[in-house]
């Protein structure tokens, strides 16, 4: 069988934290760090999406570079000298975590809690958190103008949750603007482009055109945005409701991998079951068929098993 193989990849030698490391050409610094067992925090990075390097929590110091560089997207070059443990790196990571924790509700992002501890982040030093914005207020903000908050308070993205359909909710008070949902909805998987980043600066937000409700948008409810959201801003309605009722309990959940019973593509599904009910459906990001992405039927079409 003549299956073309990719051209052979050479190994590149780089230095990370003083250690000599050999990784395949084209690897990112992040991949090299992970291969070396060097823990590197990430937020916007996901293995099934193109790196957008916007959160900047993975920054490292590269000798010769004026600014720090994002490990998730910078590819290694021969002889590159990388440091992941300098004061500059630690300070930037701490500040990024403080910036997010002081402006976004991270209560459903356990990884980020851990990283805040590791980097000794103190988000409270930026002042008392602002009251949540009125419904729709942030959606109407115009680029190039803003009203400063009262001195002593810290501006946040707090706002009411958006519930406009039966399948999933959007709680943008939890949104770190990592672009993952936009990528999954657009170029990296679904190609639907129902949502995009709108507005500018701190008022940038994930939005449909003119912030119309999802049922009026191009959304096809594949839920691939939920699948990649790292902070719980996008969530199955089932999970949202169970959480509100205080019944969501991951400790009591099992996850079973099976194959979708609908069309003939053969997508792998991970069924999250609690108390004999399917409460959430995901797909493994590393599976060749789906790369972690599903359609509306695979993602939501399972309530029949509870009938």
């Amino acid at each position: 069988m003549k299956v073309p193989v990719a051209p052979p990849r050479r190994l590149v030698e780089v230095e990370i934290d003083g250690r000599s490391v050999r990784v395949p050409e084209g690897s990112t610094i992040l991949q090299a760090c992970r291969a070396e067992g060097i823990e590197t925090p990430t937020i916007c990075y996901a293995e099934n999406l193109t790196p957008v390097n916007v959160c900047r929590v993975c920054v490292v110091e590269v000798e010769g570079a004026r600014a720090l560089v994002p490990a998730c997207s910078r590819t290694v070059e021969p002889g590159m000298k990388v440091r992941t443990d300098t004061e500059r790196v630690r300070r930037s990571r701490r500040l990024v975590l403080e910036f997010l924790a002081s402006s976004v509700d991270l209560s459903l992002a356990p990884d980020l809690h851990r990283w805040q501890e590791v980097y000794e982040a103190h988000p409270e030093r930026f002042g008392a958190l602002m009251e949540p914005a009125a419904e729709g207020e942030r959606d109407g903000r115009e680029p190039g103008r803003h009203v400063p908050v009262e001195p002593g308070t810290a501006e946040t993205v707090a706002q009411p949750v958006k519930i406009d359909n039966d399948l999933y909710v959007r709680d943008y008070a939890r949104c770190v603007l990592c672009y993952r949902c936009v990528e999954a909805c657009g170029d990296d998987a679904q190609g639907t482009y129902a949502i995009a980043v709108a507005g500018r600066g701190f008022d940038a937000r994930i939005s449909t055109e003119f912030a119309v409700p999802l049922p009026e948008s191009a959304c096809v409810y594949c839920g691939n945005c939920i699948g990649v959201c790292p902070t719980g801003a996008l969530m199955f309605k089932t999970e949202h409701d169970l959480r509100r009722e205080g019944r969501w309990d991951e400790a009591r959940q099992t996850v079973t991998t099976t194959v979708c019973p609908y069309c003939g593509v053969g997508c792998n599904l991970e069924l999250h079951v609690q108390d004999g009910e399917i409460v959430k459906v995901t797909s493994p990001a590393d599976h060749d068929v789906t790369s972690g992405h599903l359609c509306i039927k695979g993602r939501f079409g399972f309530t029949f098993t509870r009938a």
């Binding site: 390097n53 916007v54 959160c55 900047r56 929590v57 930037s92 500040l95 990024v96 910036f99 997010l100 002081s102 402006s103 930026f126 680029p143 190039g144 103008r145 803003h146 810290a154 501006e155 770190v176 603007l177 980043v197 507005g199 500018r200 600066g201 701190f202 008022d203 940038a204």
Partner: peptide, 17 residues
Amino acid sequence: RDESCGQCVPCRVGTVR
């Protein structure tokens, strides 16, 4: 604060702070 594009966290939140 007005002119930050909002893409990266250091600038998006940093200019506000």
